[in-house]
Design a protein around this nucleic acid. Structure first.
Length: 339
DNA sequence: AAGGCGGTCAACCGCCGGGAT
DNA sequence: CATCCCGGCGGTTGACCGCCT
C-alpha cells in the first residue's frame, strides 16, 4: 500500500552530496527558484530524487542558513518551545532564524535531551524525573486492572509486567512510615541517588519555581507533598485492593491461587514489602506515549545506577522465593515475598 | 598503532495533508 | 467525490569523526 516512490530509484543516486552536485543545484535554484522539485533533478542535470534535492537545498544550500553552533538563547528557546509544542520541529525551527527543522531535531536528540536528563528533567514531559517516579509509584501500588481478565477467568490474562522497577518513588512512603524500614539494598540505592543529587547542576526553570535550583532530594524523602499524595494513593489503594482481591480471588478460583497471594490487608505488604518492586503495567492505559515515558525512565535508571541496582536485586534468589505462579502473574513479586 | 565505542549530523524513508484534476 | 501529485514533516539510519583503551 502507500504511494509509489516519487522517482525511479534505480537511476537515482543516493548518499552524500558532492560539491559538483551542490553547485548544479545552487545554479539551478538561483536562476529558476524552487518551484516543482520533481522536475529539478532533470532540469539541473542531477541524478537525484526531487525529494533529495529539496532536502539538500532546504537543509544545507538555502541562503541565510546558520552553520555555527547553537547559542545559549537558541538552546533556551528550543527547550521552551519543545515543552509547549513537543517534537514539532518545523514549528520550533520557524522561531529560530537560519535554523532548519533537521538542525533543531538533531541538536535536541544529541545534546539538549541529554542535558535535561542530566539535570533531572524528563525531556519528554519536561517535568522533574523524580516527580514522574512518584507518579509511577502511585500507579505501582495499584493492582492490575481486573478488566484484563480473560473470559474464563484465568489469571494468565494479566500481561506480564517488569519484575521490578526503581525504588526511588517508594522513599516517601518509607519516610512516611507507610513502608517498613529500608533494606540495605534500598539504602545502597539511596547512596547512588545522593551522589547524583550532589553532582546535579542547577536546573532550568521548573514548576517548582522560576530559576529555583532543583535537586533530586527536593522530590524524595523530604517531599511533604509527595508524602501526602502517597497517603492519598494509599487510601485509594486500600479501596481498590479490597475490590480487586475480591474479584481476583473469584476469578482465579482454586487453580493457581495467584490472585490471592497479594490479598494481605497489611499496607506494608500491599505496597511492596521489603523491596517495593511492584508495577502493575499490565492493565494500564499503555500506548506510544507510555512506552516513550517508560524508555525515559529506563534511561534515567542507567544514569543513576538504578538499573545496576535492579540487576543485583533480580540476581538475588531470595527475591523470588520460588513461586512459579507469582512470576506468571508478573506483578507484585516483591509483595508476594514480603513476609 | 589499532580497534572499539559513542557522538554528531547529513540523508533517507514513509506517512500525511492539501491542492489540483 | 475520488484519485493523483507534491511538498512537508518527523523518525530513523548510517557514514564519519574523535576519543579512549
Amino acid at each position: 500500500m502507500g504511494r509509489p516512490p516519487c522517482c525511479d530509484k534505480a537511476n537515482v543516486k543516493k548518499g552524500p552530496w558532492t560539491p559538483e552536485e551542490d553547485a548544479k543545484l545552487l545554479a539551478y535554484t538561483s536562476t529558476h527558484g524552487t518551484g516543482n522539485w520533481t522536475n529539478v533533478p532533470q532540469r539541473a542535470g542531477l541524478k537525484r530524487c526531487g525529494k533529495s534535492c529539496r532536502l539538500r537545498y532546504t537543509n544545507y544550500l538555502r541562503p541565510n542558513l546558520k552553520h555555527e553552533n547553537f547559542t545559549q538563547e537558541e538552546e533556551d528557546l528550543i527547550v521552551t518551545l519543545h515543552a509547549m509544542l513537543g517534537s514539532r520541529w518545523s514549528l520550533i525551527a520557524n522561531q529560530l532564524p537560519g535554523r532548519t527543522d533537521n538542525d533543531v531535531k538533531n541538536y535536541w536528540n544529541t545534546k539538549l535531551s541529554k542535558k535535561l536528563r542530566q539535570r533531572g528533567i524528563d525531556p519528554i514531559t519536561h517535568r522533574p524525573i523524580a516527580d514522574l517516579m512518584h507518579s509511577i509509584g502511585a500507579l505501582a501500588i495499584r493492582p492490575p486492572q481486573p478488566l484484563a481478565l480473560s473470559p474464563n477467568g484465568g489469571s494468565t490474562a494479566y500481561l506480564p509486567a517488569p519484575a521490578a522497577l526503581p525504588l526511588v518513588h517508594d522513599v516517601a512512603y518509607h519516610a512516611a512510615g507507610m513502608l517498613p524500614p529500608m533494606t540495605p539494598a534500598q539504602q545502597q540505592q539511596q547512596v547512588v541517588i545522593a551522589r547524583v543529587d550532589a553532582d546535579a547542576p542547577a536546573s532550568p526553570t521548573t514548576e517548582h519555581g522560576q530559576g529555583q535550583e532543583l535537586k533530586w532530594s527536593d522530590f524524595l524523602a523530604d517531599d511533604a507533598a509527595a508524602a501526602a499524595a502517597a497517603a492519598e494513593a494509599q487510601q485509594q489503594q486500600q479501596v481498590v485492593l479490597g475490590q480487586y482481591h475480591h474479584e481476583a480471588a473469584a476469578a482465579a478460583g482454586a487453580g493457581s491461587g495467584v490472585a490471592v497471594h497479594g490479598a494481605g490487608s497489611s499496607s506494608a505488604a500491599a505496597t511492596g514489602g521489603d523491596d517495593g518492586g511492584i508495577v502493575g503495567v499490565g492493565g494500564g492505559g499503555g500506548g506510544d506515549g507510555a512506552a516513550a515515558f517508560i524508555d525515559a525512565i529506563l534511561d534515567c535508571d542507567k544514569e543513576t545506577g538504578v538499573d545496576q541496582f535492579i540487576a543485583e536485586l533480580l540476581a538475588d534468589p531470595a527475591y523470588y522465593a520460588g513461586s512459579s505462579s507469582s512470576s506468571e502473574m508478573g506483578w507484585g513479586i516483591g509483595l508476594l515475598n514480603a513476609d
